[in-house]
Design a protein around this nucleic acid. Structure first.
Lengths: 230, 230
DNA sequence: CTCCTAATCCATACGCTGTACGATTATGTA
DNA sequence: TACATAATCGTACAGCGTATGGATTAGGAG
């Protein structure tokens, strides 16, 4: 049994207690389990049984840890491409679903991930191929492909942000919304009042899966129309 | 000349230096000018020439300050409703543009605003009427109206998040993206490579206004299709 | 085998943060 | 006049990210 516990100084080869990867993995676990605020350098070091300052040998600062986490989430993304076996719109939807599912794996990181420009840029390069292929098959021009892909991504990002923010509050949200709407002056927002009131609590108990699918259908229909007009 | 400067204890009537509103206004200025990280309770107190602890008489904690800022941004939103003078899709687009413009006023707050559930809930109640009216005119069912509105909002949120994150980096982003794409293995993402490469730097120099309009057109086309199928 | 260098980790310390607690003073009401 | 309450301030504390510098040791060069 080799003493690997308390010795300080440079560890023997293959016995490094730290590595960028190990740090990020531990950080991801903390964030997933206890939220982004629970992630501090000291906490991270303590779960790794290491002095806080040791982390800085592998990562320059805390921002780099967060950026690394975003990178890690994207690296875990896999957008299976059914290829030409299905119609282009179904191909597009499958890629979109996979992307959303990837983002859902780590809801506590959603904000960090979605607002990290370089991470988003990464995803474009690494995982967008199925989107582009499907849109190409739809018969769009290059510029239209580019814009349609961006629109679809923006929708998924907005949707995921909402989903991550709300998390498990679905059941509280609907009655709350209803209450607020009913509290409005009668003529302040007549249409909104009529529609929302008409849907009722159960109509509003928002089904995220259904909402996502609805958005996808609207977008693919719009894209098809663009292709038709070309 | 009344001594209002250095005395401690309760101020004389009409001489209160603080109020929730005054605090939030000062906070908004700091965030707009110097970014969200510059907003600390001490900094906020010092610009108000007040002891940091005095703030806590008007707001329970810093989170409440941030929530108040989100509320303030939404309160500043005005979605002018052209009513039936224009076609429903144009009505919808105008409301969407106004919403996006409102969010753009305070880019440093975008993240806070978009991830604050209660703030988003507020906006639904307060400002969504034009969306609902336009969608109602399009001939959708109540459930379809609800879902279409949510889809549109998600798109705007995602778009605004990207816009706020990127800010003035537009010109750096395009070449960077191009470089990354060109660095990919030849057969890793053929379609993406062909499309992006074909657009070139100037084709990619993303025009946010154009991108937003493109997204709006796609969405309204999709919504029109939904109405037609009903 | 010896010496040097660089890798890895640690101990200490600094300035900053949000805010709990209690004291101080003016106000409005009884 | 007595008193509860409102508004502000002074002090203090625990926790944060991280700069600095030193300790220990593995691995490579001679």
């Amino acid at each position: 049994m080799v003493n690997v516990g308390k010795r300080s100084g440079r560890p023997r080869a293959g016995e490094e207690r730290l590595s960028r990867e190990a740090i990020l993995t531990a950080a991801l676990r903390i964030v997933d389990d206890e939220g982004i605020d629970a992630l501090t350098m000291r906490r991270l070091a303590s779960t790794l049984q290491v002095n806080p300052m040791s982390l800085y040998h592998h990562l320059p600062n805390k921002a780099a840890v967060l950026a690394g986490l975003a990178e890690l989430v994207f690296a875990g993304l896999e957008l299976p491409d059914p290829g030409d076996a299905v119609p282009w719109d179904e191909q597009l939807k499958q890629a979109a679903r996979a992307y959303r599912n990837g983002l859902r794996q780590h809801p506590n990181l959603a904000l960090q991930v979605l607002s990290d420009t370089s991470a988003v840029s990464d995803v474009v390069v690494v995982t967008m191929e199925p989107f582009y292929r499907a849109l190409d098959r739809a018969g769009l021009s290059p510029r239209q492909i580019f814009e349609a892909a961006n629109t679809l991504i923006d929708f998924i990002h907005g949707f995921s942000l909402g989903e991550a923010s709300v998390r498990a509050q679905t059941f509280e949200l609907a009655p709350d919304l209803l209450t607020r709407v009913r509290a409005l002056p009668a003529d302040k927002a007549p249409t909104l009042t009529r529609i929302v009131d008409g849907l009722g609590v159960e109509g509003l108990a928002y089904d995220f899966d259904g909402g996502f699918e609805s958005g996808l259908s609207t977008l693919t229909a719009g894209i098809a129309e663009t292709a038709r007009r070309r």
